Computed example of a mutant assay.
Amino acid sequence: MSDIIQLLPDHVANQIAAGEVVQRPASVVKELLENAIDAGGTQIKLIIKDAGKTLIQVIDNGVGMSVTDARLSFERHATSKIKTADDLFDINTKGFRGEALASIAAVSHVELKTKQENDELGTQLVIEGSEVKSQEVTVTPKGTSVAVKNLFYNIPARRNFLKSNSVELRHIMDEFHRVALAHPTINFSMFHNGSELFNLPVGNNRQRIVNIFGLKTNEKLVPVTEDTEVVKIDGFVGKPEYAKKTRGEQFFFVNNRFIKSSYLNHAVNSVFEGLLTQGTHASYFLY
């Protein structure tokens, strides 16, 4: 019997890996925003068209990349964030696996522009379905711009699975909120179809919460703080009388990263027991 096991071509392997990393436009937004933060960006702009189905672009003023790094960044398991297995126990960056850009480029058209501070010219890369179409020098500001166009253009079944624009935009805004709330010292802005949805100035945690959820939120917040040998907690909870019927304003952050935890959520809810009316949920922003 002849041999039947074979290695998958890179572009097929990348498409399969993309299924793990890129589930919808919001997944791309999360990965690109986190890359911009890891690059040291202090001003990060998110541009969306058609709820991310046509365009997702993130522009930062971070350190930028060299020509070689720009090309390598789209290779699987290529990362600047860890070098040895021991580094996994001391990770201070958002990402470390080196799969995000390769996975995104496998299922979209990507245009990258990047420049380091001391370079006169930057690098422009155009990639379609993991295939590099062009690489050339370009005039661009310091930092990096990644534009992801026509998401899932080569996987019609995945593209058809996407929800309506309003639903996909809601998921994108959720990711944007989570990242922006965790980094109040970074100026974030967000545009959809040419309209500015957010322009968040640098501030503290309370100011960032108010800038996202509205001025009326300020009077609803009660500061909380606890410092033990095990954990340090800072943040805010909403006054019981302002409890909502949805869980949209419940946020836990660990080391500046948003997490979901039913255990911690239950712990917070138990504190509010007897204070909330039936069917309502307290707001909290805990760091």
Score class of each variant (00 low, 15 high):
1 M>E: 06
3 D>K: 12
5 I>Y: 14
6 Q>T: 11
7 L>D: 10
11 H>E: 15
16 I>S: 07
27 S>F: 05
27 S>D: 03
30 K>C: 01
30 K>E: 12
30 K>L: 12
32 L>A: 08
32 L>I: 06
33 L>V: 02
35 N>Y: 10
36 A>D: 03
39 A>C: 01
40 G>W: 01
46 L>H: 08
48 I>M: 10
50 D>L: 01
50 D>W: 00
52 G>N: 04
52 G>F: 01
53 K>I: 04
53 K>Y: 00
57 Q>I: 01
58 V>P: 10
60 D>P: 03
63 V>K: 13
66 S>G: 15
67 V>F: 10
73 S>N: 13
78 A>I: 00
79 T>C: 10
87 D>H: 04
89 F>I: 08
91 I>W: 06
92 N>K: 14
92 N>V: 02
92 N>F: 01
93 T>C: 02
95 G>L: 06
100 A>M: 01
101 L>Q: 09
102 A>E: 05
107 V>M: 11
109 H>G: 03
114 T>I: 02
114 T>H: 02
115 K>I: 03
117 E>H: 11
118 N>R: 12
119 D>G: 02
121 L>T: 14
124 Q>S: 14
125 L>H: 06
128 E>G: 05
129 G>N: 15
129 G>D: 15
129 G>Q: 12
131 E>T: 13
133 K>Y: 01
138 T>Q: 02
141 P>Q: 02
143 G>M: 05
148 V>F: 05
149 K>P: 01
149 K>H: 13
150 N>P: 02
152 F>H: 07
152 F>V: 07
155 I>Q: 15
156 P>H: 05
162 L>C: 05
164 S>I: 02
167 V>Q: 14
170 R>G: 15
170 R>C: 11
171 H>G: 02
173 M>G: 00
177 H>P: 07
180 A>S: 15
181 L>C: 07
181 L>G: 08
183 H>A: 07
183 H>D: 05
184 P>E: 08
185 T>I: 05
186 I>M: 04
187 N>M: 04
190 M>N: 06
194 G>L: 10
195 S>W: 03
195 S>T: 12
195 S>N: 15
200 L>W: 09
206 R>V: 07
209 I>F: 08
209 I>Y: 09
210 V>Q: 10
210 V>G: 10
211 N>A: 14
214 G>S: 10
220 K>T: 14
221 L>M: 06
223 P>A: 05
223 P>M: 03
223 P>H: 09
227 D>G: 00
235 G>C: 04
239 K>W: 00
241 E>V: 13
242 Y>W: 11
242 Y>N: 14
243 A>K: 09
244 K>E: 15
245 K>S: 13
246 T>M: 00
249 E>K: 13
250 Q>W: 03
252 F>E: 13
254 V>W: 06
256 N>L: 08
256 N>E: 15
257 R>L: 12
257 R>A: 14
257 R>E: 15
260 K>G: 10
263 Y>V: 15
264 L>C: 03
266 H>T: 09
266 H>P: 00
268 V>G: 03
274 G>N: 02
276 L>P: 06
278 Q>R: 11
280 T>A: 04
284 Y>M: 06
285 F>D: 09
286 L>C: 10
